[in-house]
Simulated scan of single mutants.
Amino acid sequence: MLAERIKTIPPSPTLTINAKAKTMRASGIDVFSLAAGELDFDTPQYIKEAAIQAVKDGFTKYTPVDGILELKEAVCKFIETEYKLNYSPQETIICCGGKHALYNLFQVILNPGDEVIIPAPYWVSYPPMVMLAGGKPIIVDTEEKDGFKLRPEVLKKHLGPWTKAIILNSPSNPTGSVYTKKELEALAEILVDKPIWIISDDVYHKILLKENIKWTSIATLSPELKKKTLIVNAVSKTYSMTGWRIGFLIGPQDIIKATTRLQSQSTSNPSSIAQKAALAALNGPQEFILQWIKALKERVKYLSSFLKTIPGVTCFEPEAAFYAFPNFSSYFSPKIPNSLKLAEYLLEEAKVAVVPGIAFGKEGFIRLSFATSLEVIEESLNRIKTAMEKLR
């Protein structure tokens, strides 16, 4: 007999679709994928060398549960540089990826029935993680015309006595939208005096694709907001280290202590070798990131222009990260009634893997990742356009 808690938790749609695409490809079918949430660039060589050196040095034993001090200090320096905020190593924990940091966090702050406000579209794992901690996801819809960003008046309507936290993911997966400082200030005005944690998921914060876009953390707006903001970040996306599984949580010391206690009874420390690689990533050369962003800008420019050639499709132009979230609802019919059926149709008919919008809490849309080569993007979009023409 399975535990009741797991019966309500769906598998990750992104991983499921990726797995199906890989199975089709392994059987000889020519499948392209715009579903992956990881860059196609390889982990930089200096980071790999740091991991190899760690193995050679015998750095293969347990480390402190919350991570090695050198890495925690590097994270604090990273936050100081990127956020202009000062934290101590005691306010930092190293986890097995950003997802693990979030999972730990929900486990230590939520009691049964506590509500977490989650603007939709959202990253697919937010609601299940809240539910596994006994909490209740409060899904708040946002609109394409607003850049998929939460408006203050909408936030007010969803606050209640059971509200324990709100998640802000900027830059956003799946939309690529970024909250401006002014927009964050409007939300902060409502949240600052309330006993509500602000969870700031910032894993894409360095991948900005427009010159006029400036990223701001809500924690930087005032000392009061810093005290109630819990920052989640990672080396996964910025340094193309998704498989290394190193993320971090930064916040008040009592939260970090509780998270460390939980981690000590679950995973223990993150991989010692991966910690050394992450240390090298944060302390080493950073110039390559600009080259990666340059390539991503070329890709998103092509993708955005191409989508405009598909009749009936609209798309908020991504400002950051490496996803687009176009609206294909004009193609819905009895044959293709929703985004899940559309994703299945595109995989079978066009041999292109995409992620249905419903996985992110937003029907009518699909997520397209441009974290792959321009050649793959071009071929995939041509296949999608041809497949959509057959539905007209």
Score class of each variant (00 low, 15 high):
301 K>L: 05
326 P>T: 08
316 F>T: 07
334 P>S: 04
325 F>P: 06
313 V>T: 09
319 E>A: 10
316 F>Y: 14
301 K>M: 04
304 S>M: 03
326 P>I: 08
331 Y>E: 01
311 P>Y: 05
334 P>G: 00
328 F>L: 14
323 Y>F: 15
321 A>C: 09
320 A>D: 11
305 S>G: 14
333 S>W: 01
311 P>L: 14
302 Y>C: 14
318 P>I: 04
332 F>N: 12
304 S>D: 15
329 S>A: 05
328 F>R: 10
327 N>Q: 04
327 N>E: 02
333 S>D: 04
327 N>F: 07
316 F>M: 06
317 E>G: 00
319 E>W: 05
333 S>I: 02
318 P>L: 04
310 I>N: 11
321 A>W: 13
331 Y>S: 00
308 K>W: 13
324 A>Y: 03
309 T>C: 13
303 L>R: 00
328 F>M: 07
304 S>C: 08
311 P>D: 03
323 Y>C: 04
320 A>S: 02
310 I>S: 08
317 E>R: 08
329 S>L: 02
316 F>R: 07
315 C>V: 10
310 I>R: 08
307 L>S: 10
312 G>K: 15
307 L>A: 10
312 G>S: 11
321 A>M: 09
312 G>F: 09
326 P>N: 06
310 I>P: 09
324 A>I: 00
311 P>T: 09
324 A>H: 01
316 F>W: 07
313 V>L: 12
302 Y>H: 15
311 P>S: 11
316 F>D: 05
304 S>E: 10
311 P>W: 02
332 F>H: 06
304 S>R: 03
307 L>M: 14
308 K>E: 15
331 Y>W: 12
333 S>P: 02
311 P>Q: 13
322 F>A: 08
307 L>T: 08
313 V>I: 15
310 I>A: 11
325 F>C: 08
326 P>M: 10
318 P>Q: 03
331 Y>F: 15
305 S>W: 13
313 V>W: 14
313 V>D: 06
307 L>N: 10
318 P>M: 03
328 F>P: 02
334 P>E: 07
331 Y>G: 02
315 C>M: 13
309 T>E: 13
325 F>Y: 05
313 V>K: 08
323 Y>T: 04
309 T>Q: 14
324 A>F: 03
311 P>C: 12
332 F>I: 09
331 Y>Q: 02
317 E>Q: 04
330 S>F: 11
319 E>Y: 05
303 L>G: 04
320 A>N: 00
307 L>R: 13
322 F>S: 05
303 L>H: 03
324 A>S: 14
315 C>R: 06
328 F>G: 10
304 S>G: 06
324 A>R: 00
311 P>N: 12
311 P>I: 11
